[in-house]
């Protein structure tokens, strides 16, 4: 395995049975890697493991050539990895602007420029910046969540099912935004249920089954692979 941010041969779980059994994922700057697979395949778990929220019995995580396997989640965030959880991913009792500010909590420098970047990427956030984030619609909340994660100006952005529970139109919109973010040179890892759409925008795809890499390849290759299509993309 190689890449800007990668993990290899992860084995581990939440204490009971292992959920990850030899799983490897990699992503490069300015690229999107997508993790897909059936329910319970350990997709989200793999992502949590890369963030250090899981006890691993085997495997290593590397960022920019450096072994960060022993870093706490906080230290990983500080070294440039941002994570958007699937649920509870905003401060719903804080305003949109405060949400973004909290995302940049670790930064001591001037935030004005980053705010401008966020507002041009997500114009709706500028419009609603004084509103409580909890009062926004599902798609808008996801934008707040992604915006918060981007405020640290991360090198790596990890998204856990960003399109869960949003309408197809909003989903397309979100994917467009993610492509915009990728173009700024961020390495992006996405865990997705909507495998087809996700592989469409992916540079690289990983199909996990029972915590193990089953298929790996370019997004377009996986989309056209008959075996993958039959098993995971509904023909």
């Amino acid at each position: 395995m190689s890449g800007f941010f990668y993990c290899e041969n992860l084995v581990g779980g939440y204490g009971g049975e292992n959920i990850l059994n030899d799983c490897s994922v990699s992503v490069n700057k300015g690229e999107i890697s997508v993790i897909v697979g059936p329910n319970g395949a350990g997709k989200s778990t793999a992502m949590k493991a890369m963030l250090g929220m899981l006890k691993l019995s085997q495997g290593k995580v590397f960022l920019d050539g450096k072994d960060i396997s022993n870093f706490s989640p906080q230290d990983r965030v500080a070294s440039g990895i941002s994570f958007v959880p699937q649920t509870m991913n905003i401060f719903n009792e804080l305003t949109v602007k405060e949400n973004l500010e909290m995302g940049a909590y670790l930064r001591e420098d001037d935030l004005d420029e980053t705010f401008e970047e966020m507002y041009s990427l997500f114009p709706i956030l500028h419009e609603k910046k004084e509103q409580m984030a909890g009062e926004l619609s599902g798609g808008q909340r996801q934008q707040v969540a992604v915006g918060r994660a981007l405020m640290t100006r991360p090198n790596v952005l990890m998204l856990d099912e960003p399109t869960a529970g949003v309408s197809p139109v909003v989903m397309d919109e979100l994917f467009d935004k993610i492509i915009d973010i990728k173009k700024t040179g961020v390495a992006i890892i996405i865990v997705e249920q909507n495998a087809k759409q996700a592989l469409n925008i992916a540079d690289y795809g990983y199909v996990l089954v029972a915590g193990k890499n089953k298929f790996t390849g370019k997004g377009s290759e996986l989309l056209n692979d008959t075996e993958v299509r039959k098993a995971f993309l509904g023909g």
Binding site: V77, F83, M88, E98, Y105
Partner: peptide, 22 residues
């Protein structure tokens, strides 16, 4: 203040506050 907002953030969503480096 930043400190006060981080207190509210921590109160509102502890896990996300930790992820934000608070």
């Amino acid at each position: 203040t930043k400190m006060g907002k981080s207190m509210r953030a921590y109160s509102n969503n502890e896990d996300l506050a930790l992820l934000s480096g608070i």
